[in-house]
């Protein structure tokens, strides 16, 4: 049995839904019970990979048989739900920040340990709710108002503190998330921002993307009665992570990883509303 980390980098808004919502938003995104952390179900990623696998025999051996033959044997690969690791949040400097919190980093670190790619970067505590940690003093997010450094995310004003630990996190994560792209690594380091868990959970509830969707009356340009709904999505640049476990049932580990690698070479579309361009993302296996 072998475990690897899986990163998802959203290039268009990502809507992995739960069906009908009961709250303010008609079509909310899926979230982890208890913590409210947005997730993309592992089954949904697996389904996309499976659908993109063109060879029937390989498909069955790696991903398991069709549901009609499900009793034959299981697939060789299992995926955990992918959990949000960085939420892009609008900023008054640097346009947006990649926001995370100690809770999200801890959850990720647990996965990383399972995938034996754990690393020793510490998760520094956030002293107060109105403080955020950035990788460097000249981070793109920081701007001066009356000689004081500030970070303004949505309508929250925070005091930035540079942290070497966060710099280490950025340096280790960037290549894993974006491949070897140095330009993106630099953007990432300038925009990584660690906020207090309470601030994060506020942002998770209020700073996701909400779009009004309407169904127009067939021939007129008017809204059909009752056909206005609000759909929630994780914004472009959201980053999620989870793990993939391979058990050599019908295919050995090297083969399975090779196939997943090939399937994730190109961008994939994940989640709902794909025919209007949602859920375009890159998946990186580490």
């Amino acid at each position: 049995m072998k475990t690897k980390l899986l990163f998802l980098h959203a290039l268009s808004p990502l809507h992995a839904g739960t069906g009908q919502g009961v709250g303010v938003i008609d079509l909310p995104i899926a979230r982890e019970k208890g913590t409210g952390i947005p997730i993309v179900p592992g089954s949904s990623i697996k389904g996309v990979l499976r659908a993109n696998c063109s060879e029937d025999d390989t498909k069955t051996r790696v991903f398991g048989p069709d549901t009609s033959n499900a009793s034959d044997h299981g697939g060789s690969v299992q995926l955990s739900d992918l959990r949000l690791l960085f939420l892009p949040v609008r900023s008054l400097a640097g346009t947006f920040a990649w926001v995370t919190s100690p809770l999200l980093l801890r959850r990720f670190q647990r996965d990383a340990v399972l995938a034996s790619s754990g690393f020793a970067a510490a998760i520094p505590p956030i002293p107060r709710e109105d403080v955020c940690l950035v990788a460097r003093r000249d981070a793109g997010l920081v701007f001066k108002q009356k000689e004081v450094d500030e970070v303004v995310l949505e309508d929250l004003k925070l005091t930035p503190q540079p942290s070497d630990d966060i710099k280490t996190w950025a340096a280790v994560l960037a290549p894993q998330i974006f491949g070897g792209d140095m330009a993106w690594a630099d953007l990432f380091t300038k925009r990584i921002c660690v906020v207090h868990d309470d601030v994060l959970s506020f942002l998770l509830e209020t700073a996701t993307e909400v779009t009004a969707r309407i169904q127009l009356d067939k021939d007129k340009k008017t809204v059909k009665h009752g056909a206005l709904w609000y759909e929630e999505a994780l914004p472009t640049e959201s980053i999620l992570a989870g793990i993939m476990v391979v058990q050599p049932i019908m295919a050995n580990e090297a083969e399975v990883f090779g196939i997943i690698q090939a399937l994730t070479n190109n961008p994939l579309q994940v989640g709902g509303s794909v025919t209007v361009g949602r859920g375009l993302c890159r998946i990186h296996m580490v």
Binding site: G23, V24, D198, F202, T206, H225, L228
Partner: peptide
């Protein structure tokens, strides 16, 4: 901290207004 709490609580309360506007008053979103 208080602002974040007030926002979330207001949204929770509003969720109920929205639901009861529909079920009790019979008013649709459009």
């Amino acid at each position: 901290v208080e602002y974040m709490l007030l926002t979330r609580q207001t949204l929770w309360a509003l969720e109920w207004y929205k639901r009861f506007a529909q079920s009790v008053l019979g008013i649709d979103p459009t």
